[in-house]
Amino acid sequence: MTTPRTDRSPWNWLLLLPIAIPLIPALFNAVEPRLFGIPLFYWLQLAFVLVSVAVTLIVYNMTRRAR
């Protein structure tokens, strides 16, 4: 029979990172340093996508059910 399931996992706290970081303009509201001529404002916010991917992948792997 099934044991009581829960979706509480300490790993879920990690998900707060990609939610909070993009909401702090002080981190990215600047032109320098540029990357390939693209101001910081634009390339860093695109880089946050990678943070989101990394964190969701980690949480997915740590909380997935055993098959």
């Binding site: 993009p22 404002f41 695109l46 969701t56």
Partner: peptide, 19 residues
């Protein structure tokens, strides 16, 4: 720059959905 809000918006939406 204000139009670029679409990027942070679609970054934070996925962790939110996961929760």
């Amino acid at each position: 720059a204000t139009g670029f809000f679409a990027v942070p918006y679609t970054v934070i939406v996925y962790p939110l959905v996961m929760i």
